[in-house]
Simulated assay, not measured.
Amino acid sequence: MLRAFTYGAWGALSKAIVLTGVLAVAPAAAEPVEIVALGDSLTEGYGLPIQDGLVPQLTEWLAARGHDVRVVNAGVSGDTTAGGLSRAAWSLGPGTDAMIVALGGNDLLRGIDPAFSRRNLDGILQVAQEAGVEVLLVGMQAPGNYGPDYKAAFDAMYPELAERYDALLVPSFFDGLREPGAEPAAPADLARFMQADGIHPNREGVARIVAALGPAVERLIDRAAAD
């Protein structure tokens, strides 16, 4: 009896030791990829219920495609590229893996010199680079009434900075509001996707923007996961 008891006790103990070893070497559950969305009212979700804004809709879009991701809403209404630069560093936490930068619309509305906007965006990308954070830069296009020189300088800063910092690029925040391959839509054609102010997208407009932006964000996630 003593021998049987001893053998049984040892067997139970040995199984416990093996199980403990397995648990010790089992990989920890992967943390979700954290993306900070640095932007203005377009990012913040101005004029919309929280769940209809860009960040919640983008998070839902990514989750539906199997991505374990946390998107932090760092959009501030009225923010310019200067405001974005002033808070870029403290917007990035220790767990931040990537950043979406969508700024410049308010610079346009205020007619700010594109050279100034460019320096600010350059500074934001430097902050991300120093933090080891991958970036998706979302551009804007100036309207023609600013004059050809202003438009050329403003439109060029996004692709040129993306190339300089090896950042991903979406040429225009509003790309999703026109049919693939179509010319930029006239304001009247976009009205059904916009709120009454004609500046901010409505729920359907945000959904279309997310659908166009989403594949680039997936590439951003792949880059962040590879680092």
Rank of each mutant, 00 (worst) to 15 (best):
L168N: 04
L168T: 04
L168H: 00
L168R: 05
L169Q: 03
V170P: 04
V170A: 03
V170R: 00
P171F: 03
P171I: 04
P171V: 12
P171T: 05
P171C: 08
P171G: 01
S172C: 14
S172T: 11
F173T: 03
F173M: 02
F173Y: 01
F173V: 03
F174Y: 02
G176M: 01
G176Y: 12
G176A: 07
L177H: 05
L177S: 04
R178V: 03
R178G: 06
R178A: 02
R178Q: 08
R178D: 08
E179I: 12
P180M: 05
P180N: 10
P180C: 12
G181E: 09
G181P: 11
A182D: 14
A182Y: 12
A182W: 13
E183L: 12
E183V: 08
E183W: 09
P184V: 08
P184C: 00
A185Q: 02
A185H: 09
A185R: 02
A185S: 06
A185W: 02
A186L: 10
P187N: 06
P187A: 00
A188F: 11
D189R: 13
D189T: 15
L190Q: 08
L190E: 00
L190C: 03
L190R: 01
L190A: 04
A191F: 10
A191H: 10
A191I: 09
A191P: 10
R192T: 13
R192G: 09
F193D: 04
F193W: 15
F193Y: 15
F193A: 05
M194N: 05
A196P: 04
A196W: 02
A196L: 13
D197M: 09
D197W: 14
G198F: 10
G198W: 14
I199L: 15
I199F: 13
I199P: 12
I199K: 11
I199G: 10
H200W: 11
H200P: 10
